[in-house]
Design a protein around this nucleic acid. Structure first.
Lengths: 244, 244
DNA sequence: GGCACATTTAAACTATCATCGAAATATGAA
DNA sequence: TTCATATTTCGATGATAGTTTAAATGTGCC
């Protein structure tokens, strides 16, 4: 009857709430051991193991063994893109506890989206780069780095010219599910995020996709981009200038 | 624990095999009544009704009542894009019957993907347009219509200049799950598909996403693009020139 | 080797959900 | 109004799949 690929296999794997939490955690781009994934998703190690083996068999995640630990990660970039896409058309979670509400705020504030930045920070940074003319909207799906932008990123410590000598810099416009604006994805997004971790403007918050903006990062974001960051992650009204 | 949107709601809706078949049928872009969707998915009207109400509540599909019929369609373009994306990373269905195998071949041969063409036909047409220089690959995610292309489409009866007087023609590169090549999506893809139905080069096969290439279409595709189509839908080795 | 830790496998329990029969509602036709 | 068709609602059934307890495997450390 059905000539379509086995959609049900992949979707039913993602559909389970416990597995969704696990995949969410892996969306940070990190590799996590089975035990930690069990803790994060709030199930026993046995249950987690059962879920993980199903996800591996379904090619949604991949394993790498290191000693007695088994580290899990998303199988490929397509899975991450799929997760983000689903998030865009999904209803928000209903908040049940204060703890959860704070968790939520942190994630909406700043997070990684597989290998690039998202949340208020990701969007604000994108808006600032656009406003200052360092990147430009070239189409419905892409940004482009301008000549000034190339110079700007060089000053920041990212030598794009050296990285992709001939090929064009690829900067995808990635729709942000929490902000409903676009942020920078693709190659450029990945490079920026990695660099900001390196120069310690941001750092990971353990066990989630949320990232914390350091004191250094807060000062530099104000200085370079005029972005007002309240370092308290739970705060709502950030980036007053950025959206102007 | 989880600050992510309710991914599980939408995915579990798509995950059910029966609902997946229904959504697949709606991917043709047509509106279908509940009874027909029940027939296509091979369940009783009661069961179908139950599924459809869930899909509506979950904002995956929408209803429009006309007399005693209730016509269902996909809720929006995002859902169609999501379905295609899932198809790309999903394993192919295992063929159980000759009937299913033929169905499969038809769909792989030529089908609509929400509002544009896909399958061997969609890919071959795209390749031909590229080869003749009517469209160009401008980035990892987009095609662009060349000056010659504008003239070509005008001759074919599609006056792109009149449609989008100032704005750029948007042609997304859409990855084809059956061919593993890109075909033309976005605005251009939609316009082309609609026009080919209008001038009767192609016509719908009832109850599926598959489309049939008419005798007229076969001749014209050969004449305009050098595409060799065997009108027998089940045939495998088509488009000898197109992939050259 | 012996012990601790990380993870998986097996078996039993339980709950959710798709499915169908029966009956109800609603629309159109005669 | 009466009948036929299209669809939905209700109630009962049955299968699938997540969960847990218990036991097994595998890896590092002393």
């Amino acid at each position: 009857m059905n000539a379509y690929p086995n959609i049900s296999i992949v979707t039913s794997l993602i559909a389970d709430p416990t597995r969704a939490v696990m995949l969410d955690a892996l969306m940070s781009g990190q590799m996590l051991p089975a035990g930690e994934l069990a803790y994060i998703s709030g199930v026993s190690p046995q249950t987690a193991s059962s879920h993980l083996s199903k996800l591996v068999k379904g090619n949604v995640i991949a394993v790498e063994q290191q000693g007695r630990h088994r580290y899990y990660r998303l199988a490929n970039k397509e899975v991450a893109e799929l997760m983000e896409m689903i998030a865009v058309i999904s209803p928000p979670v209903q908040v049940r506890s204060l703890r959860q509400s704070q968790e939520m705020k942190k994630v909406r504030h700043a997070r990684t989206c597989y290998d690039h930045l998202a949340g208020k920070l990701g969007v604000a940074l994108t808006q600032a780069l656009l406003h200052k003319g360092f990147i430009a909207m070239v189409s419905e799906t892409e940004f482009d780095v301008t000549a000034e932008g190339m110079e700007h990123f060089r000053l920041l410590g990212i030598d794009l010219a050296a990285m992709k000598s001939n090929r064009r810099i690829f900067a995808k416009r990635c729709l942000d599910w929490s902000e409903r604006y676009h942020h920078i994805g693709g190659f450029l997004g990945s490079v920026i995020a990695r660099h900001l971790f390196e120069i310690k403007w941001i750092e990971r918050i353990e066990g989630t996709r949320a990232v914390r903006i350091t004191e250094e990062g807060r000062n530099r974001l104000q200085e370079w981009y005029g972005i007002d960051v309240d370092t308290q992650e739970g705060h709502d009204n950030l980036y007053k200038n950025a959206h102007a």
